[in-house]
């Protein structure tokens, strides 16, 4: 999926053909340590943000950046008022079984215990750039953040079209550097 910067429309690649999917929504300007097209160094990786999605939770919002590293691998870099996390999609084979999404629930991922610390229903407010999946404006996403040992984070995301797991680490904003 990508957003056309001049006209603000989004297109989705289906069956090797681009289809018009709607608009990219309104992305209000806000101070940020991460911007599309500006490389950042984090966790020993040099990442290029290529997609920017904003999710609203009523009173506020947070940003998700789809970034590519030097090997072309994709990472989600989330920024929420000083809380930054770097996560990679978890392969379906690693998805935990029997997870019942609720605050305080525990689950084992890659041999480590994770606990749900935050649950949020968020609406996709705006998208810019390229993404590995289709994001629809005004679509509701149910998010569960899980905390693991050693500053690890896992996120379970559920929306009308499906669900996904990501896995990674919390970042210190003071360690985030422009490359």
């Amino acid at each position: 999926m990508f957003t056309c910067t001049p006209c603000g429309t989004t297109s989705v690649l289906r069956d090797e053909a681009w289809e018009l999917a709607g608009t990219g929504g309104v992305m209000q300007d806000a101070p940020s340590l991460v911007r599309i097209g500006e490389q950042v160094e984090v966790e020993g990786l040099t990442l290029m943000p290529v997609g920017h999605a904003r999710f609203g939770y009523g009173r506020g919002w947070w940003d998700e950046f789809w970034c590519l590293d030097g090997e072309g691998e994709g990472h989600w870099l989330s920024a929420d008022e000083g809380d930054y996390a770097l996560e990679r999609p978890l392969a379906p084979g690693d998805w935990p079984s029997g997870f019942r999404p609720s605050l305080g629930a525990t689950v084992t991922i890659r041999g480590e215990t994770f606990r749900v610390t935050e649950a949020e229903t968020a609406v996709c407010l705006a998208v810019r750039g390229e993404f590995p999946e289709e994001l629809e404006i005004d679509e509701a996403h149910l998010y569960f953040d899980l905390a693991g040992p050693g500053g690890q984070i896992a996120t379970f995301e559920k929306w009308e079209g499906g669900e996904a797991w990501t896995f990674g680490v919390w970042l210190d904003p003071w360690d985030l550097r422009a490359a």
Binding site: P31, S32, E81
Partner: peptide, 8 residues
Amino acid sequence: VYSPTHGY
């Protein structure tokens, strides 16, 4: 104290 980029 609050910073939009570095939090609380």
